[in-house]
């Protein structure tokens, strides 16, 4: 799919500028509280002024460049990525961070590999998707087990250091590295190396982000269906 962005972008911007101007003009102009004499230019002034500058500059640029030289852009891969990211945003909460991130990462890597001209085969792809699911659940379970064990040991053996997020993140990192190592060993005989690498990068990156944000900074990433 090819689009001439040199034409569509200026036209889209001019359309936005006109809509903005119309909208800014329709705003009620409210002055600052206590401005009894009406000296404040009001809340509408700058939106209208910025809109006029925007429209005038865009129009001047368009007239200066007319007729526009076409700049065709191959938008297919970009659109595919954007659509995948929209799906990611939608699936992020219901499916959970771990599964949605791992699936989308793997999907995007496979998409790029296909775009680069590498052969796409359906069955290895489906098997790799299943490997992403199984691997993510397994690593997540291992990480959760490590965290729970840390809390249990801290309670039973009076080791408060095991409650520290940084210590837990460090131990969980060791668990992830070991799990990834086992996964690499398990996949060593699989012939489709492009998918093996994609599965490992997808799972590894997912858990690197998980450990940073969830374990170290304690951000509530959505658990989704993996709620143990």
């Amino acid at each position: 799919m090819r689009h001439n962005l040199a034409l569509w972008v200026p036209l889209g911007l001019i359309g936005f500028a006109l809509v903005w101007l119309g909208y800014a003009w329709s705003l009620p102009s409210e002055g600052m509280i206590g401005d009894r004499f009406g000296y404040d230019p009001g809340s509408r002034f700058l939106p209208v002024a910025a809109g006029i500058v925007l429209a005038a500059a865009l129009l001047g640029d368009l007239l200066r460049r007319w007729p526009l030289m076409p700049v065709p852009v191959q938008t297919g891969p970009v659109l595919a990525h954007v659509v995948t990211l929209i799906v990611y945003l939608i699936a992020f909460r219901p499916l959970g961070f771990v599964l949605s991130t791992a699936f989308v990462l793997f999907g995007l890597i496979a998409l790029n590999q296909r775009h680069m001209g590498q052969l796409f085969r359906l069955w290895p792809f489906v098997c790799a998707m299943a490997a992403v699911a199984v691997g993510s659940v397994a690593v997540f379970t291992a990480v959760r087990w490590v965290i729970r064990t840390c809390f249990a040991l801290a309670r039973t053996h009076d080791l408060p250091i095991l409650r520290e997020p940084a210590v837990q993140a460090g131990l969980a990192t060791v668990a992830v590295v070991m799990a990834m190592g086992m996964m690499i060993w398990a996949c060593r005989r699989w012939r489709h190396l492009q998918y093996v690498a994609a599965v490992q990068v997808a799972i590894g990156t997912t858990f690197a982000i998980y450990l940073l944000f969830r374990q170290l900074f304690l951000i509530q990433l959505p658990p989704g269906i993996l709620n143990w």
């Binding site: 990525h81 990211l85 990611y88 991130t101 989308v104 990462l105 995007l108 890597i109 790029n112 590999q113 775009h115 680069m116 690498a197 994609a198 990068v201 990156t205 997912t206 982000i209």
Partner: peptide, 9 residues
């Protein structure tokens, strides 16, 4: 092909 998805995510 690996880097771009990681940056996006």
């Amino acid at each position: 092909s690996f880097l771009i998805p990681c940056v996006l995510i």
